[in-house]
């Protein structure tokens, strides 16, 4: 170790504290300790407890014992569970697709020169700011079988003879909760994409105009490719929020009719708390984890810097 003797202070002369103080690794770990402790207590403990409960037969009021994967075996043969998995996917895919399309459209509109732009942008955020439960109650009223304003309007227009059974029919109920979720989720997508749109330099559009690009070509060849990084971020979050949604369903339908709108999150709650089967509920919640992990891994690759983003900045 010849190189170790060159130009280094001899370790014996330094106190323990001085050595820790000099050592970047130790110091770094010390600095991370508070954050690490917080994460451990507030993130890992509940998650770990959930996973553990899924491996027990705990019910409310009785501390259960370890039963291995029995809960999961039961769920595997449980048609209601599989229905909730199907519902969750349907809900997530359809709602996310609509949120993306409508959110992007709204962002493009808001990015134009409009009168009262700031006010319009603030209004757009409203559905997102209102507490979910409050907007869910409003939708509940809108979808009411007797007092629905939609049914009333359609009847007045002579389009329907009798009121629509929004929340009583399986497919109507699915469409209804998806519509409510889309309404609620558009602002987030729109505002994030608007922020992305505003980072695209105006001169690129001017160059494209001079290059002879039509409006649609400018969107397809300039706007959309430059927006893909932020689309990846926004849609990852949107998918995660939608996949784990609970409040809207719980207020609007409680999973009904006949479990047609039960998502994994609502089914988990229903089995665990009103049903008392904590172990089974925890198992359903834990079953969501692989799907969420898949979504995160997908977005991890989506979020990676594209090749054109690497290197020094252009402006």
């Amino acid at each position: 170790m010849a190189e170790a003797t060159i130009g280094r202070p001899t370790p014996q002369r330094l106190s323990l504290w001085a050595r820790i103080d000099n050592n970047r690794t130790v110091l770094g770990l010390c600095m991370m300790l508070p954050a690490g402790a917080l994460l451990l207590v507030f993130l890992s403990y509940p998650l770990g407890l959930g996973v553990w409960l899924g491996l027990t037969d705990t019910t409310i009021g009785r501390k259960g014992g370890f039963i291995g994967l029995e809960n999961y075996e039961l769920l595997f043969d449980d048609s209601v569970f599989w229905l909730s998995v199907f519902n969750t996917f349907l809900y997530t895919v359809v709602a996310s697709a609509f949120k993306f399309a409508l959110g992007l459209w709204l962002a493009l509109i808001l990015n134009n020169r409009l009168p009262f732009k700031a006010l319009l942008r603030a209004i757009v955020l409203l559905p997102w700011i209102v507490p979910t439960v409050l907007s869910a109650i409003a939708f509940w009223w809108i979808y009411d079988s007797q007092f629905s304003i939609i049914s009333w309007s359609l009847q007045r227009l002579g389009l329907i003879d009798q009121y629509v059974n929004f929340l009583g029919d399986a497919n109507n109920a699915r469409a209804a909760v998806i519509a409510a979720n889309v309404w609620r989720g558009i602002p987030f997508v729109a505002i994030c994409l608007l922020a992305g749109l505003q980072t695209i330099p105006q001169s690129l559009y001017e160059a494209a105009v001079l290059d002879g690009a039509s409006e649609w070509q400018r969107f397809r060849c300039v706007t959309f490719p430059l927006l893909t990084p932020i689309i990846a971020v926004v849609m990852t979050f949107s998918v995660l929020f939608t996949f784990t949604d609970f409040q809207l369903i719980y207020v609007l339908t409680r999973g009904g009719p006949f479990n047609a709108t039960h998502l994994m999150a609502t089914l988990s709650f229903q089995r665990a708390i009103p049903g008392g089967q904590l172990g089974e509920g925890a198992a359903i919640a834990t079953a969501m984890v692989p799907f969420l992990l898949a979504a995160i891994i997908f977005s991890y690759f989506g979020l990676q810097r594209r090749r054109w983003q690497q290197g020094a900045a252009n402006d």
Partner: peptide, 19 residues
């Protein structure tokens, strides 16, 4: 602009970063 048959070089170059 596209029918004027002109080309322009911009101050910040305005190259398409993804191409």
């Amino acid at each position: 602009p596209k029918q004027r048959d002109i080309a322009m070089v911009f101050q910040n170059y305005a190259l398409y970063p993804h191409m």
